[in-house]
Amino acid sequence: MRMRMSIPAKIVLYTFLVIVVIITFIPLFYTLTASFKTNMEIAGGGVNPFPATFAKLFTGDATIADLFDNYIQVFSGNGGWVGTKGNFFGYTLNSTFVSLLTVFFVVLFTSMSAYVFQRGHFPGQKFLYWLFLATMFIGAGSITIFPVLRITTKVGINNLFGLAIVQFGTAGASNLFLTMGYIKTISTELDQAARIDGCSFFSTWWRIILPLSKPILGTIALITFRGSWNNYLLPSLMLAKSQTATTLVVAVVKLQSMGGAGASQYNLMMAGTMLAVMPMLILFIAMNRTFVEGITAGAVKG
């Protein structure tokens, strides 16, 4: 849309846009600054976002280590709030492991099945395709979380590995349709050429389709990574019995609920929150375009 705007109109628009920017930033900004404060400081209130140690840094009354005291506490396991073994370094590793494994499963199997549905002919193809389509509309998610948990308990996979498998299984069919749409744009002449060169149905996928569909798979990988990293309900239930093998998001929420009515350890909670949020924000700043394209493609065109 092209609009020619006068200077006052522009000032009004920019003011509005900047106000929304401030509203967007404020919660994250105060969370960040609170993560450097002592619990006393946070409970004391006030609107000053800057922690007292920050000013002391310049006068030499505090060291960098003092500033990062909350982070050191949650990392060293002295937080004592998730059971007695608050170990956020471990949780970070767990989150990373689960997310990467989920991405691996989703990308590998989605790519293969999209190829098979797009290029293959086999008995039962229509039925299976319909099955994927139907479940997409029902939108499983948390509505079936109880029977899912019964299954994982019975099979005995209530661990990080099992979590990745379930996240892959319940990821939904939109990835499949997105990839199928992409593969459709790849010329079938390439398939035929590969077959003449002696490629089987499988190796055509491995050598031709998989490398060529990297862009869409990259997008799916990012969205999946975000979903897994941020997931709460499923990991909180699947990993409920374990004190150490849990994810960052679950650990942060545990910090909150254990704070309970009495003296909440807001300082540690905010440090944990930043640990859970920061990697996503950094990833977003680095790959902002891919995210934006992936999310709009998945919803608008899908």
Partner: peptide, 18 residues
Amino acid sequence: LMILGSVTGLVVFVVIPL
């Protein structure tokens, strides 16, 4: 074989729970 992974995931964690 190639769709086995996706179909198993769908059946075990979506269809059976439903």
